[in-house]
Computed example of a mutant assay.
Amino acid sequence: MSQAESPHRLEQLRLWAQAQHPSIEGSSDLVLAAGDASFRRYYRLTLESGETRMLMDAPPPQEDVGPFVAIARDWHAAGLPVPRVYAVDADQGFVELEDLGDEPLHLALDGADEATTHAHFDAAIALLEELQRKAPSDSLPPYDAVTLARELDLFPDWCLAQWLELDGQPPGWPALRQALIEQALAQPVVTVHRDFDAMNLMRHAAELWLIDFQDALAGPITYDLISLLHGRYRRFDAATRAAWSEAFRQRAIADGRLSDSVDSDSFLRWVNAMAAQRALKVLGIFCRLTLRDQRDGYLARLPHFLAHLQDSLEGLEGLAGHADFSAWVEDSLRPLIEARVAEVRP
């Protein structure tokens, strides 16, 4: 049981909520609303008026509410749809937020036909473009070479060495790793949500709202786009992804986020390189969540993100290390992952 799940921790949160709203004392039952891959938990609080609030429980020292609160206030001031912050106790790791309900975008994708699915993704991309136009990036940490390298290294460290118990590096890996970093650093810098996914877009008051943005950085223009198009809930074909990417490129040129010197092929190469970087990172993170944090359910998602990795590699022919690494993924990594996932399935 994590600290956030302990009865003592919940009682601390209840007492804090009562201190913010004395009129609810004695009737402040908290209902667990959501948890995520971190140590954070979210509880719904009902006020005397019937209005509800969302309480974030982010236990120190594992979590720090400071970045979330600062970004929420900056983005709210910029006119972006983010939950309002009502109260903060950074020492205890508690935040009282506007309640955006229980309808993340991914629920609307369940059973949706192709036209409806595409409409939802169009709306999400429109919100992403609004984020990039409005959100200040100068106060955010940089998505620099050190960060990119650290994320890429999650793949050999956790997926290969720890989970699959493989020795050595895959063929082509050092060259490909460096090439992916260079492709990311070549891109224009914008505000990057860093987990712009259907799970982190809430449907509320007839629009999409941003949540879970505490890890935002100033970084590559394509990162959030590929987080969505190569995300948890859908796998689109190459032509569909390319069409969305090209429309995004044209609008970015029109509103000044991107130079008109960046042609279609160059931009799509950035997209695929960024998608490969993120897929590799996610494969490592999911193994780390399983092995280190004892979280269930993540191994079953590995084949999905392995498919995303292979999709992105198909668009990177000629990149340093690409040929050897791609062949190894198909011939060695895929069979290994599929066999190991089959072993752990109930």
Rank of each mutant, 00 (worst) to 15 (best):
S2Y: 13
R9V: 09
L13N: 14
P22K: 11
E25F: 12
S28E: 15
D29K: 11
V31L: 07
R40Q: 10
R40D: 05
E51I: 05
E51D: 15
T52I: 07
G66I: 02
V69E: 11
A70L: 07
R73H: 12
H76T: 10
A77E: 14
A77M: 00
G79N: 01
P81L: 09
V85L: 08
Y86K: 12
A90I: 02
A90E: 15
D91P: 07
D91W: 09
D91M: 04
Q92Y: 13
E96Y: 04
D99G: 02
G101W: 09
E103R: 06
H106M: 04
A108K: 04
D113M: 00
H118R: 13
H120N: 01
D122M: 06
A126R: 11
E130W: 03
K134R: 08
A135K: 01
P136H: 01
S137Y: 00
D138Q: 08
A145Y: 06
A145E: 15
V146A: 13
A149C: 05
L152Q: 08
D157G: 02
L164I: 12
G168Y: 08
Q169R: 09
Q169Y: 13
P170K: 03
G172E: 04
A175V: 00
L176D: 07
L180T: 04
I181M: 03
A186V: 00
P188V: 06
T191G: 04
F196D: 06
D197R: 06
R203D: 06
W209F: 14
L210G: 04
Q214T: 03
Q214E: 12
G219Q: 02
T222F: 00
S227V: 05
H230P: 00
R232W: 14
R232Y: 15
R235D: 07
R251A: 07
I253A: 14
R257Y: 05
R257L: 14
L258H: 07
L258A: 09
L258R: 05
V262L: 09
D263P: 02
F267Q: 08
L268H: 12
A273E: 00
R278V: 02
A279C: 03
A279K: 09
K281H: 11
F286S: 10
F286G: 11
T290G: 11
D293L: 03
L299Y: 14
R301E: 14
Q310K: 08
S312L: 05
L313G: 01
E314C: 08
A320Y: 03
G321M: 01
D324L: 03
P335V: 13
E343M: 06
R345F: 05
R345P: 04
